[in-house]
Design a binder for these strands. Structure first.
Length: 426
DNA sequence: ACCCGGGGCGCC
DNA sequence: TGGGCGCCCCGGGT
């Protein structure tokens, strides 16, 4: 029997969901027709275009090269593979280029419809007209919450959502949705752990951590890293952000290259990625030292722990198999970061819950790892922001010297939140 | 009518 | 060859 926590439930616009379901259906039928026009309607592509029949068509009948394997050493056909096949076909079978774009679109709409439209509609409560996901506080290895029935922690974000799933979540008449989001909480926790002086200084003075990392990995002055008119500004910053998100988890040159190519659309050579990572280690010397210490300690104890002492056993760290051991080491490093960030959010949550009896108008709807979502009356925005922001930005425990910042956004729909003016705080 | 692993993909 | 989740589909099984 899972332990779960009941939140108030997310108010939804069922009408909008039904409208979008029709739109998604139309898109899917149309895309499926175009795909079948190319490959023939006798090849079953299924709902995801990842059936055995479709793979057989591509790799046996069309003799396309196998770009990538799955974990089980079979032919992969994920989005990365589609991109690679599309590029290969551009030079060898131009007629097939369009196929891969269509499949990408087809999967995109299929995911939106099955998971977020049909999947959400079937969980709307008849009694409350809301979604009541189960939020499980005690099921994950790192202490994070999980959400199920449905999972409301993975709604698509703007830019990857032609449906507007987040707009399904709509405040009732006279109410607003309010979201408070920790700014870069995992990076701040990482800076706290490794005590790199430049990182700490940047956070303590309200500086720009992505600019600092840009300066570090390209060995350029901070001023140049922050110069938005520099021709390389955008690309360098994108790469620096990716480094920052991966910094504390044991990033390898190949991983960085792949992420940049397929997620950011940037072609960076392996040598360049290698250099970037070396510069990162050199520029943040305490980072590597901390990582080595954590690995060593975890190897000795066979567990790793968060700052508040939640332990995670990792016996695999003593494995003789390199890949198993390496995975365990990344877990040993990641868990204190992700877990302590969660500890900090849970401490904030406890302060908020203690304040609820005095604020019955403040309704907690959802937690998304570093974010809390509330429903409030339209005239309580200022009170809510001041109270919640204060709860979240308090020093979590005595040793934690890095400032914590929570950013507030408010709006009628979850997909249309806007930043709250800073003068609400104070 | 279920169960399950594999593949794939959405988010933090 | 970063970590953490849950859901959908497929294909095979009971």
């Amino acid at each position: 029997m899972p332990v779960l926590m009941r939140f108030n439930g997310l108010p939804v616009d069922r009408q909008l969901m039904v409208e979008k379901r029709s739109e998604a259906e139309r898109q899917i039928v149309q895309l499926k027709g175009k795909i079948e026009y190319i490959i023939g309607s006798n090849v079953a592509i299924g709902a995801n275009a990842s059936t055995a029949a479709f793979k057989k068509y591509l790799f046996d009948e069309q003799q396309l090269p196998k770009m990538k394997s799955t974990d089980k050493d079979k032919d992969a056909l994920d989005d990365e593979t589609l991109i690679l096949l599309k590029e290969w076909c551009a030079g060898n079978k131009p007629d097939l280029v369009e196929l891969f774009e269509l499949v990408q679109e087809y999967r995109h709409w299929g995911k939106l419809k099955s998971t977020y439209i049909d999947g959400y509609i079937k969980h709307i409560s008849n009694a409350t007209r809301r979604l009541h996901p189960d939020l499980l506080p005690f099921t994950t290895e790192t202490g994070r919450f999980a959400s199920k029935n449905p999972n409301c922690q993975n709604m698509p974000r703007m830019g990857n959502d032609d449906v507007g799933v987040r707009n399904f979540i709509t405040a009732p008449e006279g109410k607003l949705l309010l979201s408070l989001d920790f700014s870069q909480i995992e990076l701040r926790v990482g800076a706290f752990y490794c005590k790199d002086e430049q990182m700490l200084e940047t956070y303590k003075t309200g500086g720009d951590i992505h600019a600092l990392t840009t300066a570090v990995i390209y060995k350029i002055p901070l001023a140049e890293a922050m110069d938005e008119s520099h021709p390389l500004y955008k690309e360098r910053r994108t790469i620096a952000k990716n480094c920052n998100f991966s910094t504390f988890f044991g990033l390898f040159p190949r991983g960085l290259q792949r992420t940049l190519r397929f997620k950011a659309g940037l072609d960076v050579s392996l040598d360049e990625c290698d250099k970037i990572i070396n510069n990162l280690k050199f520029g943040y010397p305490r980072l590597s030292r901390w990582q080595d210490e954590v690995k060593k300690r975890a190897g000795f104890r066979a567990y790793t722990e968060t700052w508040l002492g939640r332990r995670r056993a990792i016996p695999q760290i003593r494995s003789a198999t390199w890949s198993v051991k390496a995975f365990a080491e990344r877990v040993a490093i990641n868990t204190p970061i992700q877990g302590t960030a969660t500890d900090i959010l849970k401490l904030s949550l406890a302060r908020i819950i203690r304040g609820l009896p005095d604020r019955p108008w403040l309704k907690l709807l959802l937690q998304i790892h570093d974010e809390l979502v509330f429903e409030i009356p339209e005239n309580e925005v200022k009170n809510a922001v001041i109270f919640v922001k204060n709860c979240m930005e308090q020093q979590p425990f005595e040793a934690f010297s890095v400032p914590i910042i929570a950013e507030a956004e408010v709006g009628k729909r979850f997909g249309e939140l806007r930043g709250v003016k800073a003068d609400y705080v104070e």
